[in-house]
């Protein structure tokens, strides 16, 4: 069980041509992932998704807030201990091409972390071999077909499976999958998504799934929670399918409207609208709704007061929440 409370990350001001102010990349984010549970984060580029994942994996320190993992407050630990403890959290990044060293075979790529663990646990090389075969089987790969190969000889989907297998060598409790399928061909995506779902169900691994493709969040397992994040703040959260079917926040509705409609198979949602993608860099004062400058439904109150996240099961931060059906529906003729 993981609990994140009031997580905030401020990146200091950068001196440069455009003279950046300090960036609040993550602001007061709270969520929890039960054992074998999943939480997905969606939001546009720059909304803070990766920063949350990196903090959880111990690659970035939060400015404030607490991270509890199985009853232990990680943020209070000394750095070296924290680093060891956070090995339970493994990060899988977007690009399976960069994640693997092109000059090392798959056997070497998996052997390196296993040797470290074997030394710690006083195990021998037979144990390493067994374990290597075990993690490859878990990701659905026949060891004999890949061990002697180099990364460039594998498909994107296979490579991402190897990256996941490498993460599994340390028996993680949590996987953070940051855009883990977005660079893989669509034909292979579903297989990797199903693998993540199986790892949850079979091995009790918890999943933090970061994506800008909302549809893929549905496939890492039902009963998952979806968090919509905008400029570092959670603006809507709840069960994945409920948010897709009944989104309250205009920003969530914009993200869902942006999902392409499959002509011939789907009908566009009756309330779908063409979302605006501002390139707005300007700072928005704390006293107004963050989304109000881009919101097609903004009213006076939105320019006077910042809405708080309200509700429990399905929460939203909007003064004028209205459910809009923006998602495409399947045509009857499909089958």
């Amino acid at each position: 069980m993981i609990e994140i409370k009031n997580l905030t990350k401020v990146f200091p001001a950068r001196k440069g041509l455009l003279g950046h102010d300090a960036i609040k990349a993550v602001a007061n984010v709270c969520f929890s992932i039960p054992e074998a549970g999943s939480v997905s984060f969606i939001g546009e580029s720059g909304s803070g998704k990766t920063t949350i994942g990196r903090i959880l994996a111990g690659l970035e320190t939060p400015s404030s807030g607490d991270i509890w993992i199985q009853g232990v407050n990680v943020t209070k630990m000394p750095q070296a201990e924290r680093r060891r403890f956070l090995r339970q959290v493994q990060l899988i990044q977007q690009d399976p091409y960069q994640a693997l060293n092109p000059a090392r075979t798959i056997e070497q790529a998996l052997g390196d972390p296993l040797k470290v663990i074997a030394r710690e646990r006083g195990q021998d090389s037979a144990w390493i071999q067994t374990r290597m075969h075990d993690v490859l089987h878990r990701v659905g790969i026949e060891p004999g077909s890949v061990l002697n190969k180099y990364p460039h000889m594998l498909s994107g989907g296979q490579r991402q499976r190897i990256v996941i297998a490498r993460a599994l060598t340390v028996d993680p409790k949590v996987l953070v999958a940051d855009e883990a399928v977005s660079m893989i061909d669509v034909s292979l995506r579903l297989g990797v998504l199903k693998l993540l779902k199986d790892l949850r169900e079979q091995f009790g691994i918890s999943l933090l799934f970061i994506t800008h493709d909302v549809a893929s969040a549905r496939y890492v397992g039902q009963n998952g929670q979806l968090f919509v994040i905008y400029k570092g703040m959670v603006i809507e959260s709840g069960p994945t399918d409920q948010i897709i079917d009944q989104p309250y926040h205009p920003y969530t509705q914009a993200l869902l409207s942006a999902v392409p409609v499959l002509k011939g198979l789907e009908n566009p949602g009756p309330d779908r609208f063409i979302p605006l993608r501002g390139d707005d860099q300007e700072l928005i004062p704390d006293t107004v709704c963050l989304y109000q400058p881009r919101c097609p439904f903004a009213q006076t109150k939105c320019r006077e007061e910042r809405p708080a996240l309200q509700g429990t099961e399905h929460a939203h931060a909007c003064h004028f929440p209205v459910v809009r059906r923006v998602v495409a529906t399947v045509r009857a003729n499909e089958g």
């Binding site: 669509v186 909302v214 549905r218 496939y219 869902l256 499959l262 198979l265 789907e266 998602v327 495409a328």
Partner: peptide, 30 residues
């Protein structure tokens, strides 16, 4: 082509798309 794909490859490709609505088990990896 989307409603009535003729080539088995096209059929597989369309089935493999993660979809925003509809039953989850309709999608099958290629």
């Amino acid at each position: 082509v989307l409603a009535h794909p003729l080539h088995p490859y096209t059929q597989g490709l369309i089935k493999a798309i993660p979809r925003i609505s509809g039953p989850l088990d309709q999608a099958v990896a290629l």
